[in-house]
């Protein structure tokens, strides 16, 4: 684990970190994502949990992933898993809480980007996508659009994080 990830882990507490993202019926395939990485469980019950960071129990996402991108930026990916009905507003609120948490954990001097991602089990209707598109997540001044991925699909996280050419969204300018 590099220094920055170690710093964040120490700040959060290693007891709240996990080796995997998947929960219940939603499997997240970590293959293709850079390593080392830090996976935080906002619902951790260890000690007092993360109640100080997530006071509203209704606004906790399922997982938060930190890793360093090939271009050197710290990437934070708040992940929300939905196997049932997809409603944009509560999902964006959970992802927003995670983005705020990440802002507090990452030193301001550290260049970082955020990828809020919704993992879902079925097909999303165009109306749902339209609502997701409008439900932005703020992170360090940027209004980010929630991306989507399918639970259980091979390389689902890597596909969401990187574009079709396997490039990181923070790719360097030519």
């Amino acid at each position: 684990m590099n220094d920055m990830l170690k710093y964040i882990q120490d700040k959060i507490g290693a007891e709240h970190c996990r080796q995997f993202c998947s929960k219940d019926n939603c499997k997240v395939d970590l293959s293709g994502t850079p390593s080392p990485r830090l996976i935080v469980d906002p619902e951790s019950k260890e000690g007092e949990g993360l109640v100080n960071y997530f006071p509203d129990n209704e606004k906790k996402c399922d997982s938060i992933l930190f890793f360093q991108s090939p271009a050197g930026k710290l990437v934070v990916a708040p992940l929300e898993f939905k196997t049932g009905e997809v409603k944009a507003t509560p999902i964006s609120e959970k992802l927003q809480a995670a983005a705020c948490f990440a802002e507090r954990m990452i030193p301001e001097s550290c260049g970082s980007i955020c990828h809020p991602i919704l993992f879902h089990a079925g097909g999303l209707h165009k109306d749902q996508l339209k609502k997701l598109n409008r439900a932005k997540v703020r992170f360090r001044g940027a209004q980010l659009t929630i991306q989507t991925a399918k639970c259980g699909q091979s390389r689902n996280l890597a596909k969401a994080l990187f574009d079709g050419r396997g490039q990181s969204p923070d790719r360097k300018k030519r």
Partner: peptide, 24 residues
């Protein structure tokens, strides 16, 4: 059909986010 719509959406989301990143 939903997959096609979702792929288009995610392409759009990624492009929007890249533009936001530059802006921020």
């Amino acid at each position: 059909y939903a997959d096609v719509a979702e792929t288009l959406y995610n392409d759009s989301a990624k492009l929007q986010n890249q533009l936001e990143l530059i802006k921020s």
